[in-house]
Amino acid sequence: MTSQTELDSAVREILAAARERSTDGRERVSVDARSLPDALARAEREGRVPIVAEVKPTSPTAEGTRADDPVELAEAMVAGGAAAISVLTEPDHFGGSPEALRRIRQAVDVPVLRKDFLLREAQLDAVEADLLLLIARFVDDLEKLVTAARERGFQPLVEVHDRDELEDALAAGAEIVGINNRDLARLEVDLGTFESVAPHVPDDVTVIAESGVSSPADVRRMRAAGADALLVGSAIMDHGEESDVTENVRRLTETTQ
């Protein structure tokens, strides 16, 4: 795990809140997951760029919030061609909740990723989802948490930021890897991060480009670097604006590949 002194203050606050979040009284979940690789392949067959569109009411790096009903947002994203939906469940800094994810998963027929700061096994049981985000940098025993997620039926998406973290993810058995272009020390985005790490991902591992994709040109750049899919949040949500979420997704999924 990275030293907290190396992290942006906002990230340190998020991690502190995650450690304190209660897990009392939770029953172990069992999930019949929708396959993300199948959903990405279906998008490819239909001529769409595979986009994982993110329902993110706000974030420490966004200006403003969107108060739309999360189910309506997710349905609009699917209408725009999203292959899957990512849902923030972190409540204090991103305005998310497990209940929002539960409602979204009932309403859409694509895989749904639970995106949160999950540090220990009991935190996996907050809500059923098809995928769980595990951030390699923050987990003490990544292999144990990957195994615990799979035992519940989740598909773990392991997020990395550099070559060393990628090696840790692969050693832990990750089959879906997200490469985050956002530097957690300064919260700055560099698409070159994906381009430097992606060539070292084995061919049989699904690789997703995360953060910083805001235009068709960015989509083409990440796809050329080997991205099987792209996780896009702020550019779709357009926080604080009454933008057309369906159209925001469509302009990315219909990018010439």
Rank of each mutant, 00 (worst) to 15 (best):
P37D: 12
R48Y: 14
R114Y: 02
G226Y: 05
T23S: 05
T256H: 15
E46I: 09
L187T: 07
V232Y: 05
V55D: 03
R250K: 09
V110C: 06
E241N: 15
D109H: 12
L113Y: 04
S97R: 10
T193A: 10
E175W: 10
T193C: 11
N180W: 00
V52H: 04
R152I: 04
A17I: 08
T61C: 03
R186S: 15
R137P: 03
D109A: 14
V201T: 04
V78Q: 05
S30T: 05
A62L: 06
T2F: 11
V177T: 01
E241L: 14
F154P: 00
P60C: 11
D190R: 12
P60L: 14
L118N: 02
E151P: 07
G233I: 00
A107E: 07
G240M: 08
V146G: 05
E13P: 07
T193K: 09
E6I: 01
E247H: 13
E44W: 09
S30G: 03
L170C: 11
E188C: 04
Q155H: 11
S234K: 11
V207A: 03
T58M: 12
A198V: 13
L36M: 14
P50C: 07
R250G: 00
R150S: 07
P57R: 01
A149N: 10
T147K: 15
S59C: 12
E27D: 14
V139N: 08
R21C: 01
G153A: 08
L231Y: 03
V31R: 05
A79T: 13
V201F: 11
E175S: 15
I135L: 06
A225V: 09
A107K: 00
R102Y: 08
P111F: 01
L133P: 01
D125C: 04
E13Q: 15
E175T: 15
G96P: 07
R12I: 08
A129E: 08
A149F: 04
P111D: 00
V197N: 08
G233R: 00
S22W: 11
D203V: 12
L157M: 10
D203M: 11
A43L: 07
L230H: 02
T253L: 07
G81W: 04
G80N: 00
L73I: 15
L191S: 04
A172R: 09
E63G: 12
R150A: 10
I179L: 09
E44D: 15
T206C: 11
R223Y: 06
D238F: 00
L15H: 12
I236A: 06
A67N: 13
I104L: 04
